[in-house]
């Protein structure tokens, strides 16, 4: 915001003095430096995303957020019918430099504050989508998104916002990493190998990336060498990185937190089947949540979300089943 005065934030409860800086303190204190550019809205999601779009096509660079990813559905017309199509409908004449942020993941709040809706938006052409899993990427991807001339939807995981402080979530993970003070970007569409391995490629983002790393550690104890890839962006997707990895390991497992049917895993597995059929020694494994709304009671929520154990089992199944 200091670098580019076209950038502004718009959302609910994001800059109220004495408030919380949005539902998860992401904008906390920004109103002190940028009062004019931190715009608190009424509870009007459809309205605020449309307003952000209007400002974006006139050359500003809004960062619009919802308090929970579930409320994106309240703004669905603007996001899907307007934001995702505006440039295309104009024959490429209109530019939509618009960033949208949405916290995702189940956190003991029941069915309407819990979804991982990534796959739904993954199927909407015209939206770029990123999913930071570390503090370093959160900064780098946000900066890249703000400088991008297309709509970018950033999914942030509630359990990765921080494991310390007054607003820390129960069971939050420590996702801290070295974050340089200086300006840098993590380019959209660039994945990263989080752990190298030779027997199976595990593709996972957000919270699932951290669980995949724990799973890889356990698998190593069994003599299975897992390579963990964090695609970081879903759209565009770093096929080059994934193909190089699967070309080496010849096996893949996709992990996601959302429901299995119509999921990210379904798309990646199908694409891998098309692109890599000469290499794959086994069908691509999928780890996802069951096809149910998110339950409240802790044992049921725990059952819902993929665990380290389930990732280990899936990877083991793919490797052992194909003579690894």
């Amino acid at each position: 915001m200091a670098r580019d005065e076209r950038v502004f934030c718009i959302g609910e409860d994001i800059g109220i003095p004495g408030g919380w800086g949005g539902a998860f303190t992401v904008t906390l204190g920004l109103e002190q430096d940028f009062r004019e550019r931190i715009i608190d809205t009424p509870i009007s999601e459809a309205g605020l995303f449309g307003v952000a779009l209007g400002a974006a096509i006139m050359g500003l660079r809004p960062v619009a957020d919802v308090q929970y990813g579930d409320f994106l559905f309240c703004a669905m017309d603007q996001v899907v019918n307007q934001i995702a199509t505006m440039r295309y409908m104009s024959g490429g004449k209109v530019t939509v430099p618009l960033v949208m942020r949405a916290p995702v993941g189940a956190t003991g709040r029941g069915a309407q504050h819990a979804r991982n809706p990534e796959a739904i938006f993954y199927g909407i052409p015209g939206l770029k989508i990123v999913c930071p899993a570390t503090a370093y990427d959160a900064k780098g991807l946000l900066k890249a998104a703000v400088r991008e001339d297309n709509p970018v939807l950033i999914f942030e995981h509630k359990l990765l916002y921080g494991s310390k402080g007054a607003r820390a979530e129960t069971e939050a993970l420590d996702a801290s990493s070295e974050v340089p003070e200086e300006d840098y970007v993590v380019p959209l569409g660039e994945g990263i190998v989080r752990r190298e391995g030779t027997h199976v490629t595990v593709i996972a983002n957000l919270l699932m990336m951290h669980r995949a790393l724990l799973a890889a550690e356990r698998l190593a104890g069994e003599g299975i060498s897992a390579e963990v890839i964090d695609p970081r962006s879903l759209v565009p997707f770093d096929w080059e990185l994934v193909e190089a990895s699967v070309g080496k390991t010849m096996r893949a497992v996709v992990v996601e937190e959302g429901p299995r049917t119509g999921g990210i895993g379904a798309e990646i597995a199908a694409s891998l089947a098309e692109r890599m059929s000469d290499y794959l020694l086994a069908p691509v494994g999928r780890v996802a949540s069951p096809d149910i709304p998110v339950p409240f009671a802790p044992p049921m929520e725990e059952f819902y979300r993929p665990t380290v154990e389930r990732i280990v089992e899936a990877a083991r199944g793919v490797v052992v089943g194909s003579g690894g």
Binding site: I43, D70, F71, C74, G108, R109, G110, A111, Q112, H113, P295, F296, A297, M300
Partner: peptide, 24 residues
């Protein structure tokens, strides 16, 4: 039955729809 939680309590037999946590 533990599926709803605080934000969704209700019982249609008592004349209360499970509470709706989406504002509006």
């Amino acid at each position: 039955h533990g599926k709803g939680g605080s934000m969704h309590v209700g019982d249609l037999e008592k004349g209360m729809v499970p509470a709706i946590a989406i504002v509006g």
